[in-house]
Each structure stands twice: as C-alpha cells, then as structure tokens.
Amino acid sequence: MFCRHILQATNRLIGQSSMNIQYIGCRNIKRWVAPTMKELSRRRKKVGPDPNKPRSSYLEWNYDVELHCFQNRIGETFDKNILSEALVQREYANIQEFKAKEEGNESYIPEQHNYDLAKDGNAIISDYIKEEYSKNYPEEIAITVQKYLTTDEMLAHIAKHLGFTDLIKAVEYPLEERTLADSFKALVAALSLSSDLERAQLFVKDFVIAQMNGKDIYDIWTPEKPYEYVVKLLEQRGIKKVEPRLCNQSAVNTILANYQVGLYDSNNKSLLGIGWGENVQIAKDTAALDAIQRLYNSYARK
C-alpha cells in the first residue's frame, strides 16, 4: 500500500511521460516504515500526554449555543446579560480589564462579574433553606442543615452536575470549588432578577434541598452531650424526671460487651428512647439520641 502511494507520487513528480508505466502491485511494507513509526511513538511518549485544555479552547465551541442549551437543561429562562454576568469570575474580569489597559485599548467595555450577584444569591439560598426547615425542625437544626447545604463543596457538586464547568469564565483551570459555588449562587440571584423570587426559590428547592434526599438529618446534626440535651428538651415539654434503665446486657466483661439502655418517663412509665452501646454510658447517649429523634419526628409530623 505504501509502495503504491510512493509510486503514484513519483509518477506525479516525473510528469505526464511516465503515466504509461505499468507498476506491479507489491505486497510488502517498506523497510523504513516500522522504524519511523517506532521513532514517532517514542517521541510522542517522551513529550507526555496533552495538557488538560478547557473545552472553550476547542474549535467546535459556540458560547451562545452553550448558554441556550444550559437554559433549556435547567428549565429556566434568563435575561441574557444577567446570565452571562453570573458566569464571569471577578478575577477574570479584572485581569481582562488590566490587559486591555496595558494594550491601550480605550474602547474596551469592562465585563460585569458575579461578585455582587453571588452575595445576593447566597442570601436567597440560605434564607430559603432556613425557612423550609424551620417549618418542621427547631432553629438550630435548620441552621446546621443550611450550613451543610451551602458549603462550597456541596454547591460546586451541584453546579458541576448542571454543566457549569465549561461555561464559567475564570482565571484558573481546572476550576476551583469556590468559583463553581460562587457562580451557582450568582445564578440563583440572576434567576430572581430575570423572573421572580419564587422561581429562584423553586430552583433552590429542586436542586439544593433535593440533595438531602436519602440523607438523615441526625447524621448532619448531633448534639455534643445528648443526654443533657434531651433532659433539657423534656423539661420544656413538661416531663420533669427521666429514668434511664438498663434493659439488657450481653457478653459482659468481654471485648464484645453490649448494653441496652432505655429512657423512661418517671410518671407514666412510658418509653422515650432506647439505644445500644459497648458500655452503659455510650448506650445512654444513644438512647438520648433516639429520644431526640422521636420527639422531633413527632414534632415534624404536626
């Protein structure tokens, strides 16, 4: 095959006169091919893998189309200017402006960045999560859940799965979690500006609060001293005296020792919570945690 190519090439080089040469098809591959390919692959290996380039540097990239698809993906419509503003990092905008100044480009219009929008968005997200959770839970749980859901890590995770990664204009690549989280916050603010606050809150509910699906609130929020906490909590509800009882024990004085402690109401002898542990103290704390969950869950059902 290589032979034929070379013959054709030489034919072309020699000119019209050699067109009538009858070449005999040859089946071997020239001796220079293998060493050349080997050398090429050796050099390729020596250079190493290609650097990780941002998707926007590719030839097939159209930012407007990407923005259009992004809006359809999340099912919202935005004001075009506000949306593109929400996707610009502050450092990026500053550096672009600085570059334009250095070049002496006076007609340069500085790009809007998402710093202010991110602040507003953060307020919208935090307020809404707190509002939703304080319907069913006491304030301290609502605040803990809100803090858990608005960490940079969590918001960056959400943003990544909505396709922010390629759209954000930022200085660094790959993007930091903070940049992603800021853009997400800014997007929520942009949504409230483009449509209304309710729409933004619905967005937060669908994407941020949805992250709590399959997670237990009591894994996120745990009091430091559960027994003291539950005693205080029960006092508020009119149960003055709590009676911890050792209900069961097994394998005492072994490495697999196991105790079961139940907390009872002293007045009507009803069970408030039950828990297990490798010693009585731990079992008592576990029972207290169980009592807290029972109290708050009945509270949530109301």
Binding site: E60, E66, C69, R73, I74, G75, H157, I158, K160, H161, L162, G163, D166, K205, D206, F207, I209, A210, Q211, N213, G214
Partner: peptide, 17 residues
C-alpha cells in the same frame, strides 16, 4: 448523578460532535 430527577430531570448529555 447528583440526585437527578428528585427535583427536576436534567439531561446528562451536554454536547455531541
């Protein structure tokens, strides 16, 4: 990925060349 479909469904294919 990312609790997709709990709130809204998001198509996970973002781009085709």
């Amino acid at each position: 990925p990312g609790q997709n479909g709990v709130g809204r469904y998001v198509c996970q294919l973002q781009r085709v060349v």
